[in-house]
Computed example of a mutant assay.
Amino acid sequence: MSNQHRMHGVFAVPTTPYNADGTQNLEQLAAGVEHALDTGIGGILCLGATGEALALSRDERESQVRAVVEAAAGRAPVVVGCMAYAPAEMSELIAEAAALGADAAMITPPFYGGLPPEAAIAALRIVMAASELPVMVYNNPHSTGTDLQPSHLVELLDTGSFWSVKETSGAATRVRELRAALGDEVEVFIGADGIALEGFSQGASGWVAASAWLLPEQCQRLWDLSRDGRWGEAIELWKGLGAALGQIEDNPAFISLIKAALSRRGAEQGPVRPPLPSVDTESVDALLSTIDGIEGRALHV
């Protein structure tokens, strides 16, 4: 992988805001991109695998990618989730993303397949060997039923498109093991917000964070402190930020929770589309109270 693709740091994952009539609110989406980039966020990853991407039509996907690319305007890389069951469909989605100006694509093992790792790697190899974009491989055993361990991912190094891994298995030493197996040419991103600081301490070179769409300043600050080796300050920040991220990540309706919190803070998002669950008011109140505490402490630092 050439140095031009050495993208790293915090990548915020946008929500999909809706108008009252159920259509996408692309103006609100663009405003969110602008806000995230103004805080120093390193990249945007739209159409993530555990959000509302699978509830969008192909036309809606295209509109969203176009809006994000235009809002980013070359200031930060845009990664597009290109998940599908069949390798051929993944390849089609990557080609569409490339044509719309995306900088990279994210793929997973086929959903719901519960495939043996060897079969999943074979499917991903077909896609990655043909990809015209750098590829992030998302290891999310909870959603896909397949845990791609370092020994499996090594088999993709010769595809020519292997940019990064988004690691969400939760295995305590996995980031360190990925670093050892894949070397310096493949970036390792944390994909589970609740173990971000732990992942940074093991050498992760980035973080794909749904929470960074709601808390971009704090997430970026955590990355900056960790990157600079200011671990004492990072731990102090984590005491509050980690509590908020835990409230988000532990809630089965976490997409709705992020959207509701954003709406309450003035960036109207609308509801989530079925089948995603809607969050209860008490959870939103509790999260906003935690965020108020984080922001209040920051004013006195």
Rank of each mutant, 00 (worst) to 15 (best):
D103H: 11
G232S: 07
L93P: 02
A209N: 05
G266L: 03
L37A: 04
S283H: 13
V208I: 15
W223F: 13
P87D: 10
D38V: 04
V208R: 00
V13D: 02
L276C: 06
G296A: 09
A36F: 04
L182V: 10
L237A: 08
A49Q: 05
D228Y: 01
V10Y: 04
A129R: 15
R66E: 15
F189Y: 15
L148V: 11
L54Q: 12
G32N: 09
M106A: 14
R297V: 15
V279L: 07
A244P: 07
V135E: 03
R227S: 07
G266R: 00
Y138N: 10
R61V: 01
Q218R: 05
T39G: 05
T15I: 13
V80H: 00
A30Q: 13
T23E: 13
G194I: 14
R230F: 01
F254E: 13
G42K: 09
Y112F: 15
S283T: 11
H300K: 12
L29H: 03
A267F: 02
A119S: 09
L287T: 03
T15C: 12
G74T: 08
I294L: 15
L124N: 03
A260M: 09
V10W: 00
N140L: 14
R61G: 02
E249G: 10
T281S: 14
H35Q: 12
D38C: 07
G232L: 04
I107E: 10
C82V: 05
L100R: 10
R61E: 12
L56E: 12
F162M: 11
S63W: 04
P271I: 00
T144M: 13
Q218Y: 03
P274Y: 01
Y85W: 08
A209K: 00
P14D: 10
D59W: 00
R297L: 15
G240V: 11
A234D: 06
L299R: 14
E187M: 15
G170F: 10
G199W: 05
G246K: 01
G114C: 11
A31L: 12
E198Q: 13
E155R: 14
A130C: 08
L54D: 14
P271C: 03
G232A: 06
A71D: 05
P116R: 11
G145P: 12
I258T: 08
L241D: 11
L124Q: 13
A210N: 14
D184I: 02
D285T: 13
S278C: 05
A99T: 08
E167R: 00
N251F: 06
V165T: 08
E236P: 03
D193G: 10
L29S: 01
W238E: 15
G9Q: 05
D59N: 12
D38N: 10
W163R: 07
E96L: 12
I195S: 09
L29G: 04
A244L: 00
E217H: 06
A12V: 12
G270I: 06
